[in-house]
């Protein structure tokens, strides 16, 4: 093995990360070559010095700082989300008001909305009339149950959405 090849591998040799055959070749070479041995000793000494370097103990309360920082960042984020939502809502509300009161298109949409609501109410009252005349009464029960589960689902869905957006709230536990 040549000196150049040995010296290239000296650090890996010192760290015991060489395959056995290469390691044996280097050991053999070092026994015969004082220059490479001196280089190995030089690198070994510097490695030992770095390994014994004193690291001061970390004295600050990292956990408290981290938790406080996370909380603060979450509060900042929730304020940011709130302000963005408020801004969007204002723009939307302003747009709707403008559309409805100042444009013929808005008035048309308003009339369309009013007639749609009226139609839904008419259809609903017709269903109730039909179900009250039915001897079995199955339609009435179906409507009642559908409304009940609809409200239940809306309630839990809304709760989940609110929980997910509660960024500034207490931490997990």
């Amino acid at each position: 093995m040549l000196c150049h090849d040995v010296r290239e591998n000296l650090s890996v040799f010192l760290d015991d990360e060489l395959p056995n055959d290469l390691r044996d070749s280097i050991v053999k070479h070092l026994k015969q070559c004082p220059e490479c041995l001196a280089e190995k000793e030089r690198l070994s000494r510097v490695t030992g010095l770095v390994r014994t370097l004193e690291i001061p103990p970390l004295e600050s309360d990292v956990f408290s700082y981290v938790m406080a920082s996370i909380k603060q960042k979450d509060i900042d984020k929730s304020y940011h989300v709130f302000s963005v939502m408020l801004g969007l809502f204002s723009i939307l509300a302003g747009g709707v008001v403008t559309l409805v009161y100042f444009s013929p298109l808005g008035q048309a949409i308003l009339a369309l909305f009013g007639s749609t609501v009226k139609n839904i109410i008419d259809v609903g009252s017709l269903i109730f009339k039909i179900s009250s005349r039915s001897t079995v009464g199955i339609q009435g029960w179906s409507i009642s149950l559908t409304l009940f589960f609809g409200f239940l689902l809306s309630y839990y869905g809304l709760r989940k959405v609110l929980n997910n957006t509660n960024l500034g709230g207490p931490l997990h536990e």
Binding site: L53, I55, L58, L171, E173
Partner: peptide
Amino acid sequence: GSTEAFEQLVRQYQQYAFKIAYG
């Protein structure tokens, strides 16, 4: 989501992380 476990983790590994950063 256990805060207690996170505290334990921080206390166990803070010096470990500090050694790398300080170095």
